[in-house]
Write a protein that binds this DNA or RNA. Structure first.
Lengths: 202, 202
DNA sequence: TCGTAATTTGACTCGCTTGGTCAGTTTACC
DNA sequence: GGTAAACTGACCAAGCGAGTCAAATTACGA
């Protein structure tokens, strides 16, 4: 590693071309990560940015640096919004809303699954996102159990496993049509609901 | 490929050492496949059999030939037994029994997941096993729906996806403790049951 | 308009693992 | 013992993307 450290380089005055390239790489990375996940070959990102792969190393120090520089826009923002919004949902439907929203994110954003699966454990940012996510899980599970919306034997670990399994399925398998996916989300919800809770429709 | 074709070589009179090695390789393969799945390095199988890797190629022509020679003992027998036995279960509990048994097989036999995932599509035997399995799926789904044990919108494709996702999770993830796994099987069952059907306990 | 240092880049190396091959040696069998 | 079958150690192939570097290019200040 030469001199890189964190996000958008700004410490030393960059030359104009370097600044321009940084920006192009950033936005190419956001697009590529969102479309194909965090494991997309850097070569492709470079191509989309109209620069050489080596330039990515010059500007960001490598994949980890690049991820740290854009992960906020790629997934963190959206995830935190989901968590935040979930808190405003009524206690009884909250856990169903949360799981549905998470699964939606997983379906739409391959990068989100890479975060969950901790594909790059060397990125602080990624680990931090995971941590926050785990805490949200526990928060919502506890609340849901208290409200009777969830069957009592269901643990935070169960939720975690549920989501991780889905991440693996989406990552290594063929993604199903959206309506099939959503229907299966319903089965899931019905399987974890407490007896007392009323279902949405069914 | 030199001269191999199918299962246990028997066409031309083999020399005594060759016959002995074939047998050792077969049983080593059964052990290795059951323990670590069909993707276990041939080197390891050879080591367990006390021969060189090249001997496996001499005797079986390669991984596919070896798989074809032992897949019966490794998974087919047990799978067919499950299917057969499922037919003798009462209509209402049948689908639950089937899914539970399949998931048990998936947990205990990594090789079974390799079959499901069609890791080696060049093996006729593997494909045949898949075909038979798919037919069983449809048979049981149809019966379950007819008996009201299954929610009506649940399709054979849903069952297939359910099982495949689990195969991917077990293959690429960390396998959970058995009791967690079984509990999650319960959630699953509760999520796909028809309204009328009574659950086992809960 | 230079001089210089920052920047870019094409072409490379590297790692890493397993399947598969082959020449040369050992072994079974008649 | 002679011969062909069988075994084996050592080797190659392949894929594939990360990361590196010397050489060329470019921005920028004087």
């Amino acid at each position: 590693m030469r001199a890189m450290a964190g996000a958008a380089p700004s410490e030393p005055r960059l030359r104009a071309d370097a600044r321009r390239n940084s920006e192009q790489i950033r936005s190419a990375a956001i697009g590529a990560f969102q479309g194909q996940g965090l494991t997309v070959p850097l070569e492709k990102v470079a191509q989309a940015a109209g620069v050489s792969k080596a330039t990515i190393f010059n500007r960001f120090g490598g994949r980890i640096g690049l991820i740290d520089a854009v992960i906020e826009e790629v997934v963190a923002r959206e995830l935190f919004a989901v968590i935040e919004h979930t808190r405003s949902v009524g206690a009884v439907e909250r856990i169903a809303y949360y799981l549905t929203a998470i699964r939606d994110l997983q379906y739409r954003q391959p990068a989100f699954n890479d975060v969950l699966l901790q594909t790059y454990p060397h990125s602080r940012q990624l680990m931090e996102i995971c941590r926050v996510g785990s805490e949200a899980n526990e928060e919502f599970i506890a609340a849901a159990r208290a409200s009777g919306a969830l069957r009592p034997e269901f643990t935070a670990g169960d939720l975690h496993a549920l989501v991780l399994d889905n991440a693996l399925a989406l990552k290594h398998g063929t993604r199903p049509p959206r309506d099939d996916y959503d229907r299966r989300t319903m089965y899931l919800l019905d399987g974890i609901r407490g007896r007392s809770a009323a279902s949405g429709g069914r």
